[in-house]
């Protein structure tokens, strides 16, 4: 027997069950975090959940002024400042070149209203419009992304046939010229994408769009509107692992409510836990995440 294995060269299901990263494996009920009195907590561990009942209308379209207000409120609280302008200015300088890494997946893309609100915020920090780009699959050929000094990462949360969930950690995979190299073991080591030079240390803001998340899917042909719901929320933070962890808990809670039983994700989204335990990209332990909830709280699920 290889004794190194016994000395925890790897991670097993039992390690997660014993440890606090269980939540990020999508296996169990999440911990409700009491967010009172933590507004002054370090930005890095903060995750802002903001919801507005009117964010998505009956026609399924986003309400632009409400989306703008949600994002501005969220960054204000995230950076603990008294105006959204100050928040954007704390993230970006006028000489920055900023790429907004979006997601164009057909059935559930990043809403253009969210992209436009982010762009407006970056513009308010003094960044020239010509130095702000929005892209997804074309980032490697996009001059703004090639020269970018800063990134904003934004996409909707959904279940994913191969990674368990498609969230913020996964969204940067298009920065790799060979995304399939990250497929092993259900994309377990996706966090290593964040070490690529084109990405490393550039992502200043992460926004997980929770307006109409997809909470269930089956196999490769994977989208059914029945498995989406109007949550009307955004999760905002600087730590993609922490934001994904909170998002995953909301999806798990929705699955429990919908199916009437604990229904583990398939495959397990262990890339979120590994982003913490193996790759130190961020925090996947709900007990260490300062979740601040703003706005509409009906059926908040966390």
């Amino acid at each position: 027997m290889d004794r190194k294995l016994r000395n925890k060269e790897g991670f097993t299901r039992r390690d997660f069950i014993k440890g606090a990263s269980l939540a990020a494996l999508g296996l169990a009920v999440g911990v409700t975090v009491d967010s009172k009195d933590i507004v002054k907590a370090p930005v890095r561990t903060k995750v802002i959940l903001i919801r507005n009942k009117a964010a998505v209308g009956a026609d399924g379209k986003c309400n632009p002024p409400i989306i703008q207000d949600m994002i501005d409120q969220a960054v204000r609280v995230l950076f603990d400042v008294d105006s959204s302008d100050k928040a954007w200015k704390s993230m970006f300088k006028p000489d920055d070149i900023v790429g907004i890494k979006s997601n164009v997946w057909g059935p559930l893309p990043t809403p253009p209203e969210v992209e436009r609100s982010i762009k407006k915020g970056i513009f308010s920090a003094g960044v020239a419009e010509k130095n702000i780009g929005i892209d997804d699959r074309g980032v490697l050929g996009n001059d703004i992304f090639k020269k970018a000094t800063a990134l904003v990462n934004v996409r909707p949360l959904r279940t994913h046939h191969w990674a368990g969930v498609g969230g913020l950690i996964k969204n940067h995979i298009m920065f790799s010229p060979e995304p399939w190299n990250y497929h092993d073991n259900s994309c377990a080591d996706l966090a290593t994408v964040w070490k690529l030079p084109i990405v490393k240390d550039k992502t200043r803001l992460n926004i997980l769009v929770m307006l109409t998340p997809l909470f269930h899917g089956i196999g490769a042909h994977h989208f059914d509107r029945e498995y989406t719901w109007k949550y009307n929320g955004l999760l905002v933070g600087t730590d993609p692992v922490a934001v994904d962890t909170v998002g995953l808990q909301i999806l798990m809670a929705k699955r429990r409510a919908y199916f009437g039983e604990e229904k583990p994700m398939k495959p397990s989204p262990h890339h979120i836990a590994f982003a913490d335990t193996k790759h130190n990209l961020g925090v996947a332990d709900l007990g260490k995440i300062n979740l601040i909830k703003l706005g509409w709280d009906e059926d908040v699920l966390i």
Partner: peptide, 16 residues
């Protein structure tokens, strides 16, 4: 393969 096993029931990131 272990990737199939982990897809349906995560056991370990190593092929134990």
């Amino acid at each position: 393969l272990p990737s199939s096993l982990n897809y349906h029931y995560f056991v370990s990131d190593k092929n134990i």
